[in-house]
Design a protein around this nucleic acid. Structure first.
Lengths: 116, 116
DNA sequence: ATAATAGTTCAATGACCATTGAATTATACT
DNA sequence: AGTATAATTCAATGGTCATTGAACTATTAT
């Protein structure tokens, strides 16, 4: 598992920091995976649904698959590899055990040595 | 532990989705907790540091404390109650085991019954 | 008092982006 | 062929927000 850079981490968080996108993921988790059903259950315009789903797909957070019998229908699902990678990074980033004590290389006691 | 609403969840993620803020948290985790040291270690203008730190403090992700001997210096630290609440929510939100199978209440087979 | 230091506040700028309505593409039905 | 449906693309709008430089506040040192 490659290390996640700050920019990549921020990018994932930004994409997930949108209420409609969070609710879309929630609905997909709940088993609502058809595009049109997602829009109806969230009362959002189809083009807006399309926009948010494409953002999530571009980030590989979601995957899409067309219906085999009727290619007009599209079903979305979670990409667990990406989600797993992201949650692992978040848990590592906020791991309390990695906290270091205050360096104290700064402050009034150190004005003479360390400041200018 | 109260349940976190979508808006609140999105708000936390949005605040954390900024590279400079992520690096600030990283530095504070590493023991660099003095305001001026944070600015120097990230090569950011003091007013920009101040801006990002205040955003993180307003969200209760960080706490600040003034130096007892010289009130000009300020030290920042992580608020672990908030971080713990947030990471718990993230892990619950992305918990693979809560995934439901596709409802299939939509699609070509159901056009007659469910679609208009 | 005056100067220096740490940090904040203010105003302006520019970029990004969610939202909306209209037009468009693609597929399936009659 | 023509119509209906699922979804996307396009253009315009408005709001949010990171960044910057300058002015300002608060505290300490000389």
């Amino acid at each position: 598992m490659e290390k996640m850079e700050t920019e990549e981490f921020a990018h994932y968080l930004k994409i997930l920091s949108e209420p409609n996108r969070i609710m879309l993921i929630e609905k997909i988790m709940d088993g609502v995976q058809c595009n049109c059903e997602l829009g109806k259950s969230l009362s959002l315009a189809p083009n807006l649904i399309s926009h948010h789903l494409s953002v999530l797909c571009d980030a590989n957070i979601l995957q899409s698959k067309r219906d085999e019998n009727d290619a007009r229908w599209i079903y979305y699902s979670i990409n667990f590899d990406v989600i797993s990678k992201l949650t692992k990074h978040i848990n590592g980033f906020f791991d309390v055990s990695r906290i270091q004590p205050c360096l104290n290389s700064c402050g009034p006691k150190f004005t003479g040595e360390n400041h200018k």
